[in-house]
């Protein structure tokens, strides 16, 4: 349990640092650290598959993409557009409202139920695979259409076209 608190503390610290650092590259690096703490959370929760996916896809692929884009765009404090005060206030109020709602519901939740999981091994790769290929076979197969559509679209938008539209 103490491990959980240490990791949770670290995630919050890193998440705050993502927002508060001025340099976008540092922001991304802190985001990687945040994701890494999430990976530890998943391992503590016995969710192997999520941990691996989070590690490879989020920390690996997406973060590299982020860094790549940032370096291409050469963002720094000078080029960052200034947001108006009104926008900041509106954002703070809207975000605060969502936070209050969520916290409120979480608070009433904690007293209501502490459900034990029926099967603690549900997050293991083997069990997940079994569920994915039996109960969730149809959505799994349908995802192929989603990927194909995205692939066709990416080629379509990126390929050089002789005709000018």
């Amino acid at each position: 349990m103490s491990l959980f608190y240490v990791v949770a503390f670290l995630s919050i610290i890193f998440a705050l640092l993502v927002i508060f650092t001025k340099n976008p590259v540092h922001s991304v690096l802190y985001l990687i650290a945040t994701f890494f703490t999430f990976t530890i959370h998943y391992i503590i929760l016995n969710a192997q598959f999520l941990a691996v996916v989070n590690f490879i896809v989020y920390m690996g692929a997406i973060m590299v993409l982020f860094l790549f884009v940032l370096m291409l765009m050469n963002l720094n404090t000078d080029t960052e557009p200034m947001k108006s005060t009104l926008l900041k206030v509106v954002g703070a109020i809207a975000g605060g409202c969502l936070l209050v709602t969520l916290v409120g519901s979480m608070k009433t939740l904690s007293s209501a139920s502490t459900t034990a999981m029926d099967n603690t091994g549900i997050g293991l790769v083997e069990n997940l695979g079994k569920v994915l290929f039996s109960d969730f076979l149809l959505p799994f197969e349908l995802s192929s259409i989603l990927l194909l559509a995205a692939m066709v679209g990416a080629v379509l938008l990126a390929k050089k076209d002789n005709k000018t539209a």
């Binding site: 995802s143 559509a149 995205a150 539209a165």
Partner: peptide, 20 residues
Amino acid sequence: VGLEIMSVSLYILAGIKRKD
């Protein structure tokens, strides 16, 4: 999944006039 299949196709279709 259905909503995403629809949306992803539409994001692309909205932008097919690439020079526009």
